[in-house]
Amino acid sequence: MRAVAVGQAELKLFWRNRTALFNSLLMPLLLVPVLIAVDASGVPLVIGLVGFALLMAVYYNLVTTFVARREELVLKRLRVGELTDPEILVGAALPSVVIALGQMVLYCLVVAVVTGVDLPSRPWFLLLGVLGGVAIFVLLAAASSAFTRTVEMAQVTSLPILMACLFGSGMMFPLTNLPEVLAKVLQYLPLTPVLQLLNAAWADGPVIKPLTVVAVWIVLGTYAVQKWFRWDPRR
């Protein structure tokens, strides 16, 4: 696959970029005391860490990557080559996704060993949740990059999605603690159905609705990228 060539170069750049390294690899560790303080343990802790990896290692990291490559005119250069547009985006996203998946596996193993989490009884929902989440947040990162002028601005433009997902998806506290109307609305955030699917891997829970919401977000994200994604710097 030709996109891998771009992915390999991106991976090198990732190791050479201290900010990205910190955000992706160390930030999740800072989250552990927070999650423990809010009394997450076992399965909720695993799910919280997976959600956090999706937000930071995939979403936030990729907003900055897409903006940086656009402003460096790398995307424009790639576009006159043989790669198709989706291949360019996949190539640029590849290392962040691989690193995020690696983190998820690592954290889950650590938490499982320390707190004694059982193996999921329906692991395919774990897989669907993770893959759906990766797809959603890669697409949302590409869409957000269109509204981000500089790499520094990414800290601001990524906030709405980051904050909404961090606090409104049941990661920090269960949505059942919230007023019913608000909880209903928050079910449609991009991260909520992903976490619901992860939950469903261990406990019986609804899956049809979260799967539908995930699918809708993927469709919306694809549409947004096609409509707004910018290959050239703004002038």
Binding site: R2, A3, V4, A5, V6, Q8, A9, K12, L13, R16, N17, A68, R69, E72, L73, V74, K76, R77, L78, V80, G81, E82, L83
Partner: peptide, 20 residues
């Protein structure tokens, strides 16, 4: 005006391109 990632070496940038 085309660009290459500033933190790649000239060889790495060319090898990436060759891979596509």
């Amino acid at each position: 005006e085309g660009g290459f990632p500033p933190d790649l070496t000239a060889f790495e940038a060319a090898r990436m391109w060759a891979g596509t």
